[in-house]
Design a protein around this nucleic acid. Structure first.
Lengths: 371, 371
DNA sequence: GTTAGCACTCACACGCGGAGAGTGCTAAAC
DNA sequence: GTTTAGCACTCTCCGCGTGTGAGTGCTAAC
């Protein structure tokens, strides 16, 4: 029976997937001929479907239900059958416009990227902040009195990263004094990493006559804490959005989900947990950081069992390897892959360009009409 | 039959509510006598329950199901029956410790407050950032070169609010020049509000020989945009957390929800929408901002129909009226009100103290053992 | 290789009936 | 007058069987 993946079988596979993605119901042989008017009868289609099933690209929930793609089926579709598209120019323009509106604010870019991904692909999205491959390097700091016993420190790092922290003063200090301290510290610590700063501070504290005052050492402590906190959490931090978009997919709506309402809800809860904790994504993000182009992980291909029903479309964005983050889409395996992929590709190149501008380096050119 | 709310009826009402809150199942007359050994028979209890129902404090889903509190029932409970508790000292200490760990970072406080509220009350939480009653007032700015054609502006406002923004430079500028511009602008614009700054800028631009360079006007534009954006969105911005905690309440678990699985899911989706969009909260937050103490809004008492199944426990926090935000808990009407209220009260006083410290004013003392 | 025809298989919806839980009522006891 | 025992009544929930329809798999003819 099975004579490999003939041309016709590929066509049929493609149609099954497209139809299933659109309708979310198992697709029947009859439907295929009716809807797409292939020049053959439903019986023939059934034979082909059976062959595709034997080859592992389709399944059956039970005897008398239409066919549903397997992970392998989606994989083959993504790899060989699907036509690569790009977002329409109108969409691109809209998106660019939105990014223009929040120009200059990295945090907003991230948020916006998440929102746009979610809306465009009608699924949940995730974005990690761009992270420098190297360790955080100090640049300068400012000290600003808020009132007598309280000051605000603004720490600026290479790469335009800014952290702020308030702290209490043991005694009141004049604005001038604060400015002097800030200048001294900015000079002394400039370009150092955490470890460098820590080393310098302990060395200084050990001197018979330390260069820095007790107060200044306090500021350094605060700085070190901020840097450590940042470096620790930078790994973990995943911004996600589009929960509602994803949950409006039929998989999560009991009335539409073919199987039990129970299931739909369990799925919903699981999806929430994945998004909140990032569990199940595990190695995916580091992997995406190390790769080029758009990564597609379908169902249980990779990783954890809890991801068996979900696919992830990820891409790195950033400037070379120097500074990079990951963004992408997560949703049911029944996902409009062409659209998801082109969306992810477009947003990643857009973000890359924005970052490149920020870092004055050349990013990869977006697929068309970059801002 | 109905001779008003006798002592005994109040006791029974209280027990019904406590039992229902705990078990999430309608409570039967038999259960009450068995579990709490009141010295009367179930028949008597039934009579009393019927009376309470007639008075509007309880209902019936159908004939042969136990009683369920109405909104009015909860209201009476909250107002008159419930005993006010405080969080245990151990809990208070744990919470204080967590806040100590993120000392100095307002954003983190907000996040932490949300997380702690959610975990402690096992429901969703919401926190709005503290907002000054007055308009945003500028304090100073710093300009930092990132590379030749890009600079980072750090705007500092009264109240320790810091915004950052990158922008492109038309021509390269020396660090010294940037510093001078920053100093000039800081001096000139200090203590002004947006409108003040805008006015000054247009006046200056109209002069035959403007005080500020074109570049400096660019910085001012950027500043004005940042201030406007902040003032606009400050209203809207609601940080929420604890979705998962809330969704682990039986109301959202089809197997446990007495009614349809359908319903449970619809509820779930509705809850999501409320949290994401803040719709349905409508006037609640401004109201809470204007009131003292903890506000409890039960079910459909206030506002929108979509909130009919939810209660909200809110409190203002901050320093007097000068600077204030709102934080609270949202969850099914079947909520452990005493615990929710004490949690909200405690966290709000904690946050008030932290803010007071920041602003060097006296906050309301927390109910016990402030940090 | 293709197709018509047909038996076969399941999920799904519907209806039914029994079991169980709790109430509401009534009449007697306190 | 209040309390209580007793009991009928109501309504949900659950399991069961059954009919229906969708869709397949197979077979035999083209």
């Amino acid at each position: 029976m099975s004579a490999g993946l003939t041309e016709r079988r590929q066509t049929i596979l493609k149609l099954v997937i497209q139809e299933f993605v659109e309708t979310a119901t198992p697709v029947a042989s009859e439907t295929l001929v009716r809807k797409f008017g292939l020049g053959i009868s439903s019986a023939t289609v059934r034979n082909e479907l059976a062959a595709l099933e034997e080859l592992g690209y389709l399944t059956h929930l039970h005897t008398s239900a239409g066919r549903v793609p397997t992970d392998a089926g989606y994989r083959f579709f993504v790899e060989n059958l699907m036509e690569r598209t790009t977002l329409s120019l109108a969409e691109q323009r809209t998106i660019q416009h939105q990014f223009y509106q929040v120009r200059g604010e990295l945090d907003q870019w991230i948020q916006l990227a998440g929102a746009v991904l979610a809306r465009t692909a009608q699924n949940a999205s995730l974005v990690t902040p761009p992270r420098a491959a190297e360790r955080l390097r100090f640049r300068s700091l400012e000290l600003i009195a808020i009132h007598e016993s309280m000051a605000l420190a603004v720490f600026v790092f290479h790469g335009g990263i800014v952290k702020q922290q308030t702290f209490t003063l043991d005694t009141a200090r004049a604005a001038e004094e604060l400015r002097r301290s800030a200048a001294r510290l900015s000079d002394a610590l400039s370009d150092l990493t955490v470890s460098g700063i820590e080393e310098l501070a302990t060395r200084d504290a050990g001197l018979p006559r330390p260069t820095f005052s007790e107060f200044e050492h306090g500021v350094i402590d605060s700085l070190v804490r901020a840097m450590q906190a940042f470096e620790e959490q930078a790994q973990e931090q995943i911004h996600s959005d589009g929960l509602l978009e994803m949950l409006s997919q039929p998989e999560f709506i009991p009335a539409l989900a073919r199987d039990d309402a129970e299931r739909a809800v369990a799925r919903m809860r699981r999806a929430l947990e994945i998004l909140k904790s990032g569990r199940g994504l595990g190695t995916l993000i580091p992997q995406a950081l190390a790769s080029d182009g758009v990564q597609v992980i379908i169902g249980g291909e990779n990783s954890a069992d809890e991801m068996r029903e979900y696919s992830v479309v990820l891409a790195r964005y950033g400037v070379d390897r120097a500074i990079a983050g990951v963004l992408g889409i997560i949703g049911p395996t029944r996902m409009a892959y062409p659209r998801s992929i082109s969306t992810v590709r477009y947003i990643s190149s857009l973000m890359s360009n924005l970052l490149a501008e920020l870092y004055n380096a050349e990013g990869r050119a977006p697929e068309s009409g970059a801002p």
